[in-house]
Design a protein around this nucleic acid. Structure first.
Lengths: 134, 134
DNA sequence: TCATTACTTTAGAAGTCCATCATATAACGG
DNA sequence: CCGTTATATGATGGACTTCTAAAGTAATGA
């Protein structure tokens, strides 16, 4: 079992930052909108997320900080786009994982035993409606 | 531009939680070790991460809480494994993204202009040695 | 220059995260 | 039952995150 060399820590830190950028619902929504459309203005993102301007701006700053998006000002407007296509891939995989998770959770609530392990089923599935998944 | 229906919020919350589980270097390392080996004991994870027992335990609790791993006790030992294969996929995509990011960053430091946008290049690349990527 | 639009940053409160230290719990053999 | 091993949980302080409201900055046309 190889150890965790301290030399790798910065790389893991950068990777963790990528996931940090994705770890808020509004920011996921923003990235999904950007995955759908090449570039989007802040105003459009405000509408697509239902967030107030300053809140959204701070979320966008996080996404910029962690290299998930790039911004370009053209006149009065600022356009955002995904920094790398792999960001969209992360969303796609997460979607698939979520579907599995929901499936597993509903199975458990229906009385079927968990696949393996003794993990306690999450209650997230119970609170989650079968809304259309992206 | 479709809005962010409140009905979807719980689903986004669950998705955000998945990413939250991934947003710490030690937890990434744990998941990578689990992606390599079907199941691993806590002791082995302690060695592979260089973390003290209670710190690791708290990280493992986060991974359990967000449905990224499952635990199974057998006698004195507890074995951990990935809850879904898509977790490994997330790590794979992130690795590819990181490689792109590092490449972009080193290009910028070498004096080439950023691909698009006016985003400020991260200083992460400068701090990051070209250690072997997983 | 001024007013307006679009967007960002600041400040503060409340909540969350993380590492460390201490303690608790589960399993097992003597 | 007791001692030991393996692992989990609790408490705490400091750092970080998120939302709201206010203020600041950039661009533009009159």
């Amino acid at each position: 079992m190889d150890r965790f060399p301290a030399a790798d820590a910065p790389l893991y830190e950068v990777k963790a930052n990528l996931f940090k950028g994705l770890s808020h619902p509004v920011r996921i929504r923003v990235l999904e909108l950007l995955a759908d459309t090449a570039e989007v203005t802040v105003t459009e993102l405000m509408q697509g997320t239902n967030q107030e301007a300053s809140n959204l701006s701070q979320h966008l700053a996080v996404l910029r900080r962690y290299n998930l998006v790039v911004a370009q000002r053209r006149g009065v407007q600022v356009f955002y786009r995904l920094a790398y296509p792999q960001v969209a891939d992360l969303l796609t995989v997460a979607r698939s994982l979520l579907q599995q998770l929901l499936h597993t959770t509903t199975q458990q609530l229906a009385g079927f035993s968990p696949p393996a392990g003794e993990s306690v089923p999450s209650t997230a599935g119970a609170a989650v409606k079968e809304a259309p998944l992206r």
